[in-house]
């Protein structure tokens, strides 16, 4: 028997639930341990104080209030109260998904188109650079001294740019599954948010 045992079994001690052997052992410990003895007497005093608190006067209008509440007609059940929390999140998630699928690819496509235009606009500039590489006058186009070779070279460069654009377009196609990820994530977020709102609402009700 030690102080720790007393602390752990204080409930049984105060409730008179110890075996006679345990009771004797506890008593023997309390006789030699003033700290435990003081601790147990304090707890016993606390219990006596709690028991002494007794009944609290009941307000006279409690029964009246209950009777009035029971007499009130039951509020009409709103069907939306059932359907709204259950189906609105699904509808919202679907709507967000559809909007995401329609708008995000549109945005991506417009970006792609812009890139293509930039590249095509860039093609004549490449053509401008061609004479420079041959050591000729860089202002070829401006002066009108464009040769057949220049035209062929420019055409070849334009073809290469077009090919590059097609490669980029194919690469863009491969990135499309990420749109589904984005839309799914948006839908899931809405579902989670709605779940939180419904949970709080139910707790309030």
């Amino acid at each position: 028997m030690n102080c720790e045992w007393i602390t752990e079994h204080i409930c049984d001690m105060l409730g008179g639930l110890l075996t006679p052997e345990e009771h004797d052992a506890v008593q023997a410990h309390l006789n030699v341990c003033p700290e435990c003895s003081f601790f147990v007497s304090e707890l016993r005093q606390d219990m006596l104080l709690l028991q002494g608190l007794g009944d609290v006067p009941v307000p006279v209008d409690l029964k009246l209030r209950i009777a009035e509440a029971l007499a009130k007609p039951k509020p009409q059940k709103n069907p939306w109260r059932f359907f709204l929390p259950r189906f609105a999140p699904v509808a919202a998630a679907v709507l967000i998904s559809i909007l995401s699928i329609n708008t995000i690819p549109g945005y991506m496509a417009s970006r792609e188109q812009l890139t293509k235009e930039t590249q095509i606009d860039g093609a004549p500039r490449l053509q401008m650079a061609a004479p420079d590489q041959r050591g000729a006058d860089p202002e070829v186009e401006g002066t009108g001294n464009c040769t057949v070779t220049d035209t062929i070279n420019a055409g070849a460069k334009l073809g290469a740019a077009t090919e590059e654009l097609m490669t980029m377009s194919l690469a863009a196609d491969k990135t499309e599954p990420s749109l589904w990820v984005v839309s799914s994530a948006a839908g899931s977020t809405v579902l989670l948010l709605w779940g939180a709102v419904v949970y709080r609402w139910y707790k309030k009700v």
């Binding site: 009941v58 409690l62 029964k63 209030r65």
Partner: peptide, 26 residues
């Protein structure tokens, strides 16, 4: 009538004020 005293004891001891205790008992 039979149980209001003990129910009110619980609600008051748990809240420590009459206003809440009355609402909770009701």
């Amino acid at each position: 009538d039979k149980y209001q005293q003990r129910v009110y004891n619980i609600t008051f001891r748990m809240t420590n004020n009459h206003e809440d205790a009355l609402d909770l008992a009701q």
